[in-house]
């Protein structure tokens, strides 16, 4: 029953976006369990069969996708699950297929300079600041991903980690700043089933 309501909600939201918001493109089969908040004039691309969900046991939080200027883009791949993730973009944020992102913050800018005026930083460039997240990545709750980070595929970012440097494929990172605790062995073919289950 809940799945049907989520499907219906997703369909209504995609129709609303098609009519009124030309810069938001959503693929088929979106399921929405909680509110999805999209603000700003930038491009937002969401792939097929994505799931929008709240945090486990906390009904207040919802998913936010903010773009800060018209050139900003947020690209989300197919079969991605967003659980109360907060993504804000000034340049570009890319998320691969089959990723699971829990209640974490992802921002590709510092928002302010260190000087007293606290203006928007002018020396940021797209090459230094864009965020790339690979396929089958798991990002734990209460973690933060800062600008210029590229995360390889099959990475696990633990809860409470603050990622400031790029991570190679199959790493498991934890801490502030995030350090690689161990390298995960190759994913067995049987594990694919487990990933697609409900959290």
């Amino acid at each position: 029953m809940k799945e049907y309501i989520a499907c219906l909600r997703g369909k209504l939201f995609s129709i609303k976006c098609r009519l009124f918001r030309k810069r938001v493109i959503i693929g088929n089969g979106l399921r929405m369990h909680t509110r999805l908040d999209i603000r700003g004039a930038g491009m937002v691309l969401i792939g097929r069969d994505c799931v929008i969900d709240g945090a486990c046991g906390d009904s207040h939080q919802f998913v936010t996708l903010y773009t800060l200027n018209p050139h900003a883009t947020i690209t989300i791949g197919n079969h991605v699950r967003l659980c109360a993730a907060r993504i804000s973009s000034r340049f570009s944020v890319n998320i691969g297929n089959n990723a699971i992102i829990e209640e974490s913050g992802i921002a590709d800018t510092d928002f302010h300079t260190l000087e007293k005026s606290r203006e928007l930083p002018s020396d940021e460039r797209i090459e230094d600041c864009q965020i790339m997240i690979g396929d089958r990545v798991l990002i734990g709750p209460r973690s933060i991903i800062t600008k210029g980070v590229s995360i390889g595929s099959d990475v696990v970012v633990g809860p409470g980690a603050i990622v400031i440097r790029s991570l190679p494929a199959r790493a498991f990172a934890l801490g502030n700043p995030a350090k690689i605790v161990k390298i995960i062995q190759a994913v067995e073919p049987g594990n694919e089933k487990c990933r697609s289950e409900n959290i």
Binding site: E102, L138, V156, P159, F172, I184, C194, E197
Partner: peptide
């Protein structure tokens, strides 16, 4: 605070 006995649903850990 948060108490959980799993990191994520990853089976390797």
């Amino acid at each position: 605070c948060l108490i959980q006995d799993k990191l994520t649903i990853h089976t390797q850990i």
